[in-house]
Design a protein around this nucleic acid. Structure first.
Length: 1087
RNA sequence: GCCGGAGUGGCGGAAUUGGCAGACGCGGCGGAUUCAAAAUCCGCUUCUGGAAACAGAGUGGGGGUUCGAGUCCCCCCUCCGGCACCA
């Protein structure tokens, strides 16, 4: 293979050696090697079945979150993650992997469209030029992407398959019995054969229900109909309602400023995630994805993923699984006129996580949007305050989400209705209040003011009854111990929560020590530790991942604040015992221990909870719940139920710059799919992007009238008369659509038959994407949507793996410095002067400001442009600096001053191998043993550190090696032998690939070094014969002795005890114990 | 309030399994080289006391377990990210 020639770098200063490593040298060799790689397609990775593919190698699919190519160009944050994956990929290549490392463009999106609105330039034009700029910038970093796989989501060849996936989900339903998606055809088959029937509320009824899982509707449930009992319209409506992609009338988040509706996930604090514009709620008929059907699987699937805890927790929280019960409260309409009350629903169905507190439900609340409120307004009850109620519901509807969240005080109005509490038989009032949300559960609650803080505040505000039905669990055994002393009675209380032993110790403590309330915290710690048994809170009842959270699970909680234990400690602190007698006497009084003015929402023991059919009294909350549910199911008043916070995913946008839906509507308004063979449905050209001003959200594509009005034949709809007039769907897909499956397309980006060839998909996606690196801002949105599509596609046989991303990693944000005035306001960096040692003053005022870390922003003038940094230092130094700043996952400030350290390192490394005068390789004849050992150690360390993405320590190890080698004897002409330099350059190359290639070429290695093997290391060389061992006396290091590395504990002890200084220090003391850890240290205990 | 993280020199950070705290880099100080500067090279650089040897303190604070704790346990504080009237 030929080696590109390097001309001597132009001398910048008169004295600088001609071949010194410098920015100008870097800017010369870097583009040269980039061109070399591109020309030879060094990083082109063939697919299975293609020439050059080696099936004997293992695969490694390493994915970066592809960027949205903005007009502003690359930010320093982009190359952080990209450099990390690049180093790892190069390392894997050197270790004999087939590496898939692709890059592409997430190119549909709002910024390009907004720019088009302002300037009239077509979004495709601005996007294409932004892509060219991004590509240029990324290539300047020398990343080893397989550019032959590049594509953009706006390519028709790509979004054709995005539309295809939409149709796949459109043509599928979620079979709750099988817990997976199946084709619509299977649903129709099931209905026609009679296996499936149609429920009263449009659900699927199963023959096997009852024996099967929870929530399945049985054939014999009330109102269930057979398929043949439905007419054609009903059948169509039923089927359309079952689709994974369905048209739903929803209250949507409409953002007038952006001119589009947004998904729940895109709305934060009542404002749009992008741009922070106000969002209002308005009803709209929109395409939705039935992601809620996958709630359980999306949650369960998290357990097996190697993802950051925070991200798993956020997804779990977003899915929001709650276990509890559904309870029916019959409305008390006795004595009312049946004719008038025909429209009133017979009962209120509520969801609760605390069925054990049903005896404490003293009133009910429905959301202002609840049908019962409309019923109360239409046909008022005798007690209904009609005017107040109307005023309240009107106000609640007008209130934006922001205002709702800001309101603290509980407000509400009585509806005039009463319901019967199924546990107590009491007649309880039904109120409406906006603290109950229509979108969660059934929009109605049973209120238990004694044990729910919100209900408590509401009851206080309106003078409603409060009944305590739970006694604080931690105090319950203490209270019991205070009153019952016989072993039999203690037995009776049960100790399944593990409290009694600790209570016994605490009793011992309070009876033998003086009381000091301020020491309660410490004494608990002491007691718990003295018992030497793992202390555990009652098993978690919180929603989240399945299974107990122990220290071994990735979800283990670091914080125990707010736990039952904290409640206990707080309650005891507040009681301020003064003596042991006081303790025993007051623990006997249950009322004293409940804090005033607050609901007790923690687990405890049930009290005041029994009727003729069920008795919960004395049961711990967990058991009380189970018994309450058992009773509800038997009495028919309710059933066990799992509720999710997750809502269906709103998929329609009213914008231009997105994928069109492959859907048309016929004259009846029924929707039809465009035939898959007729895809893509191309985005029509337009030159007017102004949003349509309208009270009702109107899609922009409506302006393309020639495109919208077409015929079934023209649009490619099978099953309709080709001449039948149809109108196209004018909404477009959101930006998430393209990024939901892009990782699949990389497997086989040119395939025209499938979204990716089967062999390619099976090979690269085997076990999922091996490593996915990107920002934590996508923790919920992109990563949840992509998992949903993937799981659905897996069900439907389009992909082979159940989860897309096996290992996920978030790189931290690169921040910048800013300066803060005493009042905490920030000052741009160009308005600040340094006034001595790390002190800063604001130029305008002369006042002192302090340096703080802040997000890079235009207003703070602290944005770093990667192009500038490369011009000043070169890409290799840039890469090294970003990797050396700190742990990849940490957010770190860019400090321009620090980069020079990596420049110096590169120069030293270069000088280690190259004569700065001649530019020739300089090598020693003989190897220095110490350097050889250090090289082995460094090779091992760098390899391990790359594997665990600890690039900062890997670089530190290489710096150490270069520093040590630079100091080595130079008598033989060089510091490293050719063989040593060869090995060092190979480990340096993944980090600084251009300099790596250049040095490799100088050392006569055949390029590219990128495909040379990773050097071996000999584990025997990592061990020294003699090690320095610290000798501690009472835990303090008092001496350091050289000892044989393989000395055993006895020998070490003897050596330590024989040391002069140790003998001196031990004079007059008795040696109690000696602990010697071979190869580590010796500790002598003496007094 | 809830969930997830973090807190170590002047600064960025290291310490992988409970075993020498501060690797490595920046900055600073001193020196060599130079007419001079840059660059480069060498030495020192946690704090306190001391000329030094050395002694004491030290990983946000308080307690505990252990021969030994930055690391494990308990309590508290601060900061960052996320969620939030979710029944």
């Amino acid at each position: 293979m030929s080696e590109p020639s390097t001309s001597p770098s132009p001398s910048s200063g008169s004295a600088a050696p001609p071949h010194r490593y410098s920015a100008s040298l870097a800017n010369e060799i870097e583009p040269k090697w980039q061109a070399w790689w591109a020309e030879r397609e060094t990083f082109r990775q063939p697919n299975p079945g293609e020439p050059g593919f080696d099936a004997s190698k293992p695969k490694f699919y390493c994915l970066d979150m592809f960027p949205y190519p903005s007009g502003a160009g690359l930010h320093v944050g982009h190359p952080e993650g990209y450099t990390a994956t690049d180093i790892l990929c190069r390392y894997k290549l050197m270790n004999g992997f087939n590496v898939l490392h692709p890059m592409g463009w997430d190119a549909f999106g709002l910024p390009a469209e907004q720019y088009a609105i302002q300037t009239g330039v077509h979004p495709a034009e601005t996007t294409r030029s932004a892509i060219d700029n991004f590509r240029r910038q990324l290539q300047r970093f020398g990343f080893c992407y397989d550019w032959s796989r590049e594509y953009a989501t706006i390519d028709e060849d790509y979004y054709r398959w995005t539309q295809w996936i939409f149709l796949k989900l459109y043509d599928a339903w979620f079979d709750a019995g099988a817990k997976k998606a199946r084709p619509i055809a299977a649903l129709i088959e099931g209905l026609e054969s009679g296996d499936l029937r149609v429920g009263a509320e449009g659900e699927v009824a199963y023959a096997a229900a009852g024996a099967g899982g929870i929530g399945l509707l049985a054939h014999d449930a009330p109102g269930v109909r057979r398929w043949h009992e439905l007419n054609a319209r009903e059948r169509r409506a039923f089927i359309d309602d079952q689709r994974l992609a369905y048209l739903g009338e929803q209250t949507v988040n409409w953002c007038p400023k952006l001119g589009t509706a947004l998904a729940n996930e895109e709305v934060i604090d009542g404002r749009s995630e992008r741009g922070g514009h106000p969002v209002v709620r308005t009803p709209l008929r929109q395409w939705m994805f039935r992601i809620t059907a996958y709630a359980e699987r999306l949650l369960e699937g998290l357990g097996d993923l190697d993802w950051p805890n925070s991200t798993k927790a956020m997804q779990a929280e977003w899915i929001g699984r709650s276990e509890g019960a559904e309870i029916e409260f019959v409305l008390d309409v006795e004595g009312a006129d049946p004719a008038i009350d025909a429209d009133v629903p017979p009962m209120l169905r509520v969801f609760t996580t605390r069925p054990d507190t049903v005896f404490g439900a003293t009133y009910m609340v429905v959301a202002p949007e609840h049908p019962l409120v409309s019923a109360a307004l239409a046909k008022p009850r005798p007690e209904t305050p009609v005017d107040d109620l109307r005023a309240y519901t009107d106000a609640a509807r007008a209130r934006s989400d922001i205002e709702r969240q800001e309101a603290k005080d509980k407000t509400g109005v009585f509806t005039g209705f009463y319901a019967i509490n199924p546990a107590t038989g009491e007649r309880i009032p039904v109120w409406t209040s906006d603290y109950v949300l229509m979108g969660y559960g059934s929009g109605a609650i049973m209120a238990v003011p004694a044990h729910d803080q919100r209900d408590f505040e509401f009851a206080q505000a309106f003078g409603l009854a409060i009944r305590q039905v739970v006694y604080p669990s931690p105090l319950y055994p203490m209270w019991w111990v205070g009153n019952h002393t016989t072993p039999e009675e203690l037995e009776g209380v049960g100790d399944e929560e593990g409290w009694l032993g600790v209570v016994a110790d605490f009793m011992g403590y309070v009876t033998t020590n003086e009381f000091d309330p301020s020491l309660y915290h410490e004494s608990f710690g002491t007691i718990i530790n003295r018992r030497r048994r793992p202390y555990s809170d009652p098993p978690p009842e919180r929603e989240g991942l399945a299974g107990p959270r122990t220290a071994d699970t990735p979800m283990a909680s670091g914080s125990r604040r707010g736990s039952v234990r904290s409640t206990w400690v707080e309650a005891i602190q507040e009681m301020k015992f003064t003596s042991a007698e006081d303790f025993c006497a007051r623990m006997a009084d249950p009322i004293r221990v409940v804090r005033q003015g607050e609901a007790y929402a923690e687990p405890g023991r049930a009290i005041n909870s029994s009727n003729d059919a069920v008795d919960l009294n004395g049961l711990p909350t967990k058991l009380a719940k189970a018994r309450a549910i058992h009773w509800l199911e038997h009495s028919g008043a309710g059933r066990r139920r799992i509720n999710y916070r997750l809502r269906d995913w709103l998929f329609s946008r009213q914008r231009y710059w997105g994928e069109p839906f492959p859907i048309v509507f016929d004259e009846h308004g029924d929707h039809h799919a465009v035939d898959a063979s007729k895809l893509p449905v191309a985005l029509p050209p337009m030159d007017d992007y102004q949003p349509i001003e309208s009270d009702t959200p109107t899609p922009l594509l409506g302006k393309a009238t020639d495109w919208v009005r077409t015929t079934a034949g023209e649009a490619g709809v099978a099953g309709l008369d080709p001449d039948a007039p149809v109108t196209r769907e004018t909404n477009t897909m959101p930006g998430w659509a393209g990024s939901c499956w892009y990782y699949l397309r990389y497997c086989d980006p040119k395939n025209t038959e499938r979204l990716a060839g089967e062999d390619a998909e099976r090979y690269w996606m085997d076990g999922g994407v091996d490593l996915y690196i990107g920002g934590a801002e996508h923790a919920v949105l992109h990563l949840l949507y992509a998992r949903f599509w993937h799981q659905a596609l897996h069900d439907l046989g389009a992909v082979t793996t159940p989860e897309p991303f096996t290992k996920l990693f978030h790189q931290g944000m690169i921040t910048g410095f800013a300066y803060q005035r005493p009042d905490k306001s920030l000052v741009p960096i160009d308005e600040v002067d340094e006034s001595g040692d790390d002190a800063f003053v604001e130029r305008a005022t002369g006042e002192a400001v302090t340096q703080v870390v802040a997000k890079m922003s235009k207003s703070l003038k602290n944005v770093i442009n990667p192009d500038d940094v490369i011009a000043e230092h070169g890409a290799d130094v840039f890469r090294l600096y970003e990797m050396y700043m700190g742990p990849l996952e940490a957010s770190k400030p860019w400090n321009t001053r620090d980069i020079v350290g990596l420049s110096r390192f590169m120069a030293r490394a270069w000088r280690l191998c190259v004569d700065e005068q001649t530019g020739e390789a300089v090598v020693a004849e003989t190897a220095d043993d110490g350097i050889e050992r250090l090289l082995h150690k460094t090779i091992a360390k760098v390899g391990e550190d790359i594997e665990r993405l600890s690039f900062n320590t890997a670089i530190a190890a290489m710096i150490e090696f270069v520093n040590a080698a630079s100091k080595a004897d130079t008598a033989s002409g060089g510091r490293l032998t050719r063989d040593q330099a060869d090995r060092f350059v190979r480990i340096l190359a993944p980090f600084a690939p251009h300099a790596g290639e250049e040095l490799w070429a100088k050392l006569d290695g055949p390029p590219p070094v990128s495909l040379a093997g990773w050097p071996e290391h000999d584990p025997a060389m990592l061990k020294a014969d003699e090690v320095e061992v610290p000798v501690q006396i009472m835990g303090k290091v008092r001496a350091r002795l050289m000892m044989p590395a393989d000395a055993d504990a006895k020998a070490m002890e003897a050596l330590a005890m024989g040391d002069e200084r140790v003998v001196e220090l031990l004079a007059g003391k008795t040696v109690r114990k000696v602990v010697a850890v071979p190869g580590r240290m010796v500790n002598i205990v003496a007094n």
